[in-house]
Design a protein around this nucleic acid. Structure first.
Lengths: 245, 245
DNA sequence: CGTCGAGTTGACATAATTCAAGTAAGGTGG
DNA sequence: CCACCTTACTTGAATTATGTCAACTCGACG
């Protein structure tokens, strides 16, 4: 396909002019393929690129001195990745491919040109950065102030929700596509404790499991114990600058 | 004073053109005063404004259903506050005045005009949003993956560092200006446990205390147990668009 | 058929919270 | 100026949540 994943993504929120669309397509000129497990950028290493995720799934995390890992976020097709490289010379996080992945890299010059020539896209990028920030805030509150069961519930709801977005539908069951070890690193728990909490969620009849698949049975109660807020419904891009034709 | 706090802030990173400077000054036309404890915006309530903090100190937090609170960040003069209001109709966080405060409110139209007419400022705003995001990542890793003593150490280093920035110097002692209750809400701990950890930090000869004042005695070891990374030194704004004269 | 990674479970250890009691400091009304 | 409150801080003892360690199962894969 010759279209732009990022443009597809933005079209969910606003109509793009053809000039804007073209600029976004140009951003994705170069392509780079990664295999599962390949590292896109490594924490602490100099980097000058950012990426549009074209295909597959990425995960970002930080590693502390003692070797423990905090998983920050998963990225799906259309996401704009590695944005913090815009402000720091060295990568502040590690980003790794969870699946086979295609990314479109571009450097700070590319970002600069885009922002300079398309103020409306610049405004959107600012807006998306804010949405990312709020996603981090939600996880911070979850990890800082909720008990283990709630954190796991919140994580499952988050995955479920992103899955639903991706498929433009709400599938009954989904595959978290992470090990319990990874779920632990995302929620600030150990894999063993994640396992126990999953069992309790089953015992409480909030979810059911079969193999790797998870089904959310009682969405309301899940939302309650996971302190879930649907941010998406409250999005507002109406203030963006008018398109320049 | 008739200058712009935000402009002062940005000047730490780049030279502003006079047109840019003027636009920022105009952003701060309106002023609003708050007393200690006044709430600037309340989580969940509709809001269409953002703010430049002109004077004083603000703190942002979220409250969960069970009433527990997660403190996210403190803001100082020159900071750009309430930015997530740009993307959501309703406020996702509560922001409260810690001191007597002056803010300059402006609405989404104001933001729109700024971004539209000054692409270089738009790029800076994008960059600042990324820096904020990384600050949240650091706190997330701290809360998710560090033991209590390390979290408290990290919080103290953060306050110490922001204090140093503010005064363009490194004062030996500083006043955290928060209760231990608040330190707990920032680090995901209880006030009682914060108290114990402070005592241990003193016993370990990492800090000393007299009254509300804290002095960091062994900065190296504090950085080690707090997993501290000085992000500021790695900032890179060199890629920003060239100024338009 | 053996190995390996992930999941599961129990017993035990540790970290952090809760509860409770007391101290110190600052503010206020008499 | 003092007596009284209130709020924050401090500390110990008991409790609970979570982590650690170890053993076992299961399915995938060569």
């Amino acid at each position: 396909m010759s279209g732009s994943c990022f443009a597809e993504h933005l079209k969910h929120f606003v109509d793009l002019t053809s000039a804007e669309h073209d600029a976004l397509v140009r951003l994705e000129d170069a392509q780079r393929a990664l295999a599962r497990g390949d590292i896109l950028q490594r924490q602490g290493e100099p980097i000058d690129e950012m990426f549009v995720l074209k295909h597959g799934r990425l995960m970002s995390y930080v590693v502390l001195d003692d070797g423990s890992r905090q998983i920050l976020r998963h990225y799906y097709a259309g996401d704009f990745v590695g944005t913090s490289n815009a402000v720091y010379r060295c990568s502040s996080v590690t980003i790794v491919a969870v699946d086979a992945v295609t990314v479109c890299p571009f450097d700070k010059q590319g970002l600069r040109n885009l922002l300079e020539e398309h103020p409306r896209v610049a405004a959107m990028m600012f807006a998306l950065a804010q949405a990312e920030r709020v996603a981090l805030i939600d996880r911070l509150a979850s990890i800082g102030r909720m008990p283990a069961k709630g954190r796991v519930a919140a994580l499952l709801l988050d995955i479920h929700h992103r899955n639903a977005m991706l498929h433009d539908a709400v599938p009954a069951s989904f595959n978290p596509q992470m090990t319990q070890e990874e779920m632990g690193d995302a929620t600030g728990l150990t894999s063993v404790h994640v396992n126990r909490m999953m069992r309790e969620l089953v015992d409480d009849r909030l979810i059911t499991r079969s193999g790797p698949l998870v089904t959310i049975v009682d969405l309301d109660r899940m939302k309650r114990i996971g302190n879930y807020v649907d941010r998406h419904r409250d999005l507002d891009f109406s203030w963006l600058p008018a398109p320049r034709r």
